[in-house]
Amino acid sequence: MKNMILALKSLFYQANLNHENMQGTGFAYMVEEAAKLKGVELDEDTKVKETEYFHTHPFLANFILGMWVKEKKIGGEPDFYKKVYSSAFGALGDSFFWHSLRPLCFIMSALIGYNDPFLGLLTYLVLYNAFHLFFRFGGFAIGYELGRDVIIFFNRINFNRWPKYTDTLSTFMLGFFLSFIVKESSDFNPLVLGVSTVYLLAGLAIARKLDIVFGLILILIITGFFLYFTGV
């Protein structure tokens, strides 16, 4: 139960995000709470030190927190491993949660929510937060149990491969979804299908050369003119 309350508090730990110490204030707050929970005494110097720069993926911060308290308790090197794991978990979390899980949730929810916004909303929030909350709520206990070897957990579940699997599924679902909305919007219209194919290829061709915002502005204007002059 106390772990649960700690995990709930961690939902707010980014609130003082700034360019001085990034998530350092939040980490200092969480460290105080977690140390209290595990009966670890913290002196004033340690509390002040923990407000220094800290930045990692927010969903994986509780793993570092658990590891930190464990290392502190056994007289290890909590701050050394905190530094090591913050960048490692930052990269791991960013590539799965920000890079890969969001596209999958988007496509699934758009597909399901096309006719029913409530179902779409539910799909996105449930699918995304199932992963989010699993790591957020389980992180502290796992971090505390494994201590400085917390990376073993991520190796055990092959976490670094998750983005690859998710992206493969997203690629398939993106194709599926495109077929779905083309069919819903225009059914079998050779002109629309042909032009859509050209648009997709154009997007692929310039995606690495032109920033998406400028790409969007360009295509808004071109499409407007195209539809205006063809009278579609």
Binding site: L178, L200, A202, G203, A205, A207, G215
Partner: peptide, 14 residues
Amino acid sequence: LMVFTFLSGYILRF
């Protein structure tokens, strides 16, 4: 639809 199809090219690259 056409605008989104174009942007799908970006997502696919991503």
